[in-house]
Design a protein around this nucleic acid. Sequence first.
DNA 1: TTTCATGTTTGTCGAACATCGAACATGGGT
DNA 2: ACCCATGTTCGATGTTCGACAAACATGAAA
Lengths: 104, 104
Amino acid sequence: MRQPDHPAIDTVQLTEVLAALADPVRLALVATLADGGARSCGEFDLPVAKSTLSHHMKVLREAGILTSRVEGTRCFVTLRSELEDRFPGLLDRVLALAAPPAEG
Amino acid sequence: MRQPDHPAIDTVQLTEVLAALADPVRLALVATLADGGARSCGEFDLPVAKSTLSHHMKVLREAGILTSRVEGTRCFVTLRSELEDRFPGLLDRVLALAAPPAEG
DNA sequence: TTTCATGTTTGTCGAACATCGAACATGGGT
DNA sequence: ACCCATGTTCGATGTTCGACAAACATGAAA
C-alpha cells in the first residue's frame, strides 16, 4: 500500500470541511479519534462495508481532517492537527456538540 | 403566501446543520444575516436564480438556521436565535472562520 | 380587474454522493 | 510458495444535490 496523499492545509476550504463532517458515519469516526490517539481502520465499529469505510476515510483525509499512515498491512488514522491552525476551534466545537449528552 | 413551517429546534440534527452550512451560497447567505438583522429574500446579491435561492432558503429553514416571515408579498429572513440554544457556539465559530480575511 | 413584484413550487437535468460486493494489492506468517 | 489479514480500487446502483426555467400563488398598485 502506498502512503496516501494529504492536501496542503491551506488549500482546504471551510465548506469542504463542513461537508465532510456533515455525515453521521464520518462524524462518528472523527468523534472516535477525538482523544488524539491513532486507530487502525479496522478498529472502527461502524455499520458500513469496509470499502465504504475506506471511502469515508478518503473524504476526511482530503478535507484535511485526518491523516493516514500505512504501516505494514494496516492503516492508522489520526486527527490532523494542522486543521486547528487552519480553522481554529472548529473541530472542537463540532465534536463538543456531537458528543453524547452524557447525562444521568 | 402561507407562513412557512419551521422545525422544532430539538428535532434538528447536527449533521443537518453542518450540511446546510456546507454550501458556498448558503454560507454567504448566512454570513450576510450575521449582523442579526432581517433581509428580504430579494436583497441578497447572489449568482443564482430566484428559484434556486428559494430552495436554499428552504434548506436553511429546515435546518433550523433561519426563520422566514411573510409580510405582504415579501419574505423576510433572520437567523434563528434558538439555534444557539441547540448548538451553542457553532454558528459563531463557523461564521468567524468564514469571514473574509479582512487584511490590508 | 389588470398589471406588476415577489417568492414558491414543480419538473427536469447532470453531477456528486453513499453504498455495496468483487477484484486487486500488499505484507506477514507458516 | 501459499495463505490470510488488511485495505484500496473498481464498477454498478440508487439517491441526493444544485441548478435552471416555467408555471403558479399572492398581495399591492394602477
